[in-house]
């Protein structure tokens, strides 16, 4: 579980995060949503420790991030997996080398054990016959899946994804969402996804927090998204006609106005 309390972050006079509270539970897909510039990415970077917070607490199962030494943070990071927006695969390494990199760097496993674990993770994300290809030789969707395989190869307790389906076609995006949800439940990981993709919100959002102007404006589940009356949230999520229709139909089904 990750508990966040009154997290604030400024860059000079620009107050990006203005006191965010949230709890991200294990085995659940936690979504951070909001418009561009709402502070999602800065919040995610604060959670990862890539930015230091000005105030507030980020608590990883009783371990307070701001109280940790550099070495303790490094050890915590061995428990984190991260899928970056652009995949961030190492260009000069093959798919297999990318996935096995953390194992080679941080474990004393034999070559056979590393190969076995790497292949397990690649099979888990349904990558076949691409072990010796370079990132530039595979599609965007495959790159995302390789990035997920790399993120889970060390058996992380916490998985972070920054816009995991940006730049993907709707079908592939759905596959990636489903994959992250399956992995979260299968390995009981605390997953935090940064997104503004409304398909993801309605498909995999076990717990959703909505940020606007650096503040948490709304929190709920994907079912509650339909019934919420929070104006900012409704305007953001149901900005397209298609989603407005979906909302009207769902509310009608539940006898809501």
């Amino acid at each position: 579980m990750i508990r966040v309390e009154n997290v604030q972050k400024s860059f000079g006079d620009n107050h990006v995060l203005k006191g965010i509270d949230a709890t991200f539970l294990e085995g659940r897909t936690n979504l951070i949503i909001g418009k561009s510039g709402s502070g999602k990415t800065v919040f995610l970077k604060c959670l990862l420790g890539l930015h230091d917070t000005d105030e507030g607490i980020i608590d990883y199962d009783g371990r307070i991030l701001s109280e940790m030494s550099k070495e303790q943070r490094r050890k915590l990071r061995l428990e984190l997996g991260m899928v970056f927006q652009g995949s961030a695969l190492f260009d000069s390494l093959t798919v297999e080398e990318n996935v096995s990199f953390p194992l080679k760097m941080f474990t004393n496993k034999s070559k056979a054990e590393i190969a076995e674990r790497t292949n397990f993770c690649l099979n888990r994300v349904r990558i076949e016959n691409a072990n010796h290809l370079f990132p530039a030789e595979i599609s965007g969707g495959m790159q995302k899946r390789v990035a997920i395989a790399r993120a889970i190869v060390m058996n992380p307790k916490y998985l972070f994804c920054d816009e995991p389906n940006s730049g993907l076609d709707p079908k592939t995006a759905m596959v990636i969402d489903e994959l992250i949800k399956e992995i979260t439940e299968e390995f009981n990981i605390t997953t935090v996804i940064n997104t503004h993709d409304m398909n993801s919100v309605l498909q995999v959002g076990d717990n959703i927090i909505f940020l606007a102007d650096g503040k948490k404006v709304w929190e709920g589940t994907k079912e509650e998204v339909i019934t919420t009356d929070n104006e900012e949230m409704v305007n953001f999520v149901f900005s397209s006609e298609l989603f407005k229709k979906i909302r009207r139909a769902a509310r009608k089904e539940q006898n809501l106005p």
Binding site: L50, K75, L76, R77, L78, G86, A88, F90
Partner: peptide, 13 residues
């Protein structure tokens, strides 16, 4: 291309 961030998040110096 945030590959350095990826290394940092993994815990690599």
């Amino acid at each position: 291309s945030v590959q350095i961030d990826a290394l940092e998040v993994m815990g690599v110096k």
